[in-house]
């Protein structure tokens, strides 16, 4: 059995739990307003565009393009050794979703690079298990 990496646990506020439950089932679902169809991230109780509270957890295509990135050389969390990359990805559905990118060197990154969501097993630092969503290059042959 491989060792499951540990990560700082996500913040679970009033509206966050479904995001992580869906992630645990390998689905990236975000809130889509039933009134104006705006897709929002991170989770909130109402739509900032039309102020409606009526929404559904819509399945995202999981596809997006790199808008930018940075490389952490300083280690901020005991669970995440540096260096590591964070990429800002603009989803096809609109929201910008930062995450790490797996199996990718910084030199391969550029604005507009196509990426796809993947899910990795993690042990959150509150002792619970779950899955974290990450990015991989669309061209990456690694199986999902």
């Amino acid at each position: 059995m491989s060792v499951v990496p540990e990560r700082p646990a996500p913040i679970i506020g009033l509206y966050d739990a479904p995001l992580w439950s869906f992630a645990a089932n390998n689905e990236l679902r975000l809130q889509r307003c039933n009134s104006c169809k705006h897709v929002r991230y991170f989770p909130t109780g109402y739509c900032p565009v039309c102020l409606s509270e009526d929404h559904e957890w819509a399945l995202m295509s999981g596809k997006g393009r790199v808008a930018s990135w940075c490389v952490f050389h300083k280690q901020y969390f005991p669970q995440i050794p540096a260096p590591y990359i964070v990429v800002m990805v603009e989803l096809e559905e609109g929201p910008i979703v930062p995450a790490n990118i797996i199996n990718c060197q910084e030199e391969e990154l550029k604005i507009g690079l196509s990426v796809h969501v993947v899910f990795e097993d993690v042990l959150w630092n509150d002792g619970t298990r779950g899955k974290i969503f990450q990015w991989r290059k669309e061209s990456d042959p690694v199986s999902r």
Binding site: R7, P8, S68, Y76, F77, I80, Y84, V86, P98, V122
Partner: peptide, 19 residues
């Protein structure tokens, strides 16, 4: 919010803009 990915600090939020 972004701590599960280690995306933390105002410096990092500016680093992605400069990049």
């Amino acid at each position: 919010y972004y701590r599960p990915w280690g995306f933390t600090s105002q410096g990092a939020f500016d680093a992605v803009v400069v990049q």
